[in-house]
């Protein structure tokens, strides 16, 4: 790892497009400013790992747990009727049930 010493207000360039500035040092916290192209995604490390871990777990839908989704589906719809609070937002995106990209599940005949 390359280690550089910088003072508040000083910056480091990574290539042409990324500039990292030490904005402020306050106790044991350092504020860092990042200028980067929009396509560069910038995450706090712990959140990045947290999302990877959650995605991994989401990808492992165990056999048998699908039945749980049915109960959850019933629970969800009664919540919507009951509470009234959690209502689908009346936006143009949601005029049909669920996102438009949904395609009907259609088994191909063998």
């Amino acid at each position: 790892m390359l280690i550089l010493t910088r003072k508040p207000g000083e910056s480091v360039f990574i290539g042409d497009g990324i500039k990292i500035t030490i904005v402020e040092i306050k106790g044991n916290q350092i504020r860092v400013g990042i200028d980067a192209p929009k396509e560069m995604r910038i995450y706090r490390e712990e959140i990045y790992y947290q999302i990877i871990e959650e995605n991994k777990q989401a990808a492992e839908v165990l056999a048998g747990s699908e039945e749980g989704l049915e109960g959850l589906s019933v629970n969800w719809s009664s919540r919507k009727q009951g509470a009234g609070k959690v209502q689908t937002e009346a936006k143009k995106e949601t005029e049909s049930q669920g996102p438009e990209v949904v395609v009907k599940r259609k088994k191909k005949k063998d």
């Binding site: 990045y48 999302i51 990877i52 871990e53 995605n55 991994k56 990808a59 989704l69 049915e70 959850l72 589906s73 969800w76 719809s77 049930q97 669920g98 996102p99 990209v101 949904v102 395609v103 009907k104 599940r105």
Partner: peptide, 20 residues
């Protein structure tokens, strides 16, 4: 998806609402 860069094309299949 983050951590799953090998999968780039997806289709959506209906399940019990609100799930797909």
């Amino acid at each position: 998806l983050i951590g799953f860069s090998r999968g780039q094309k997806f289709i959506m299949l209906e399940h019990k609402p609100p799930f797909s």
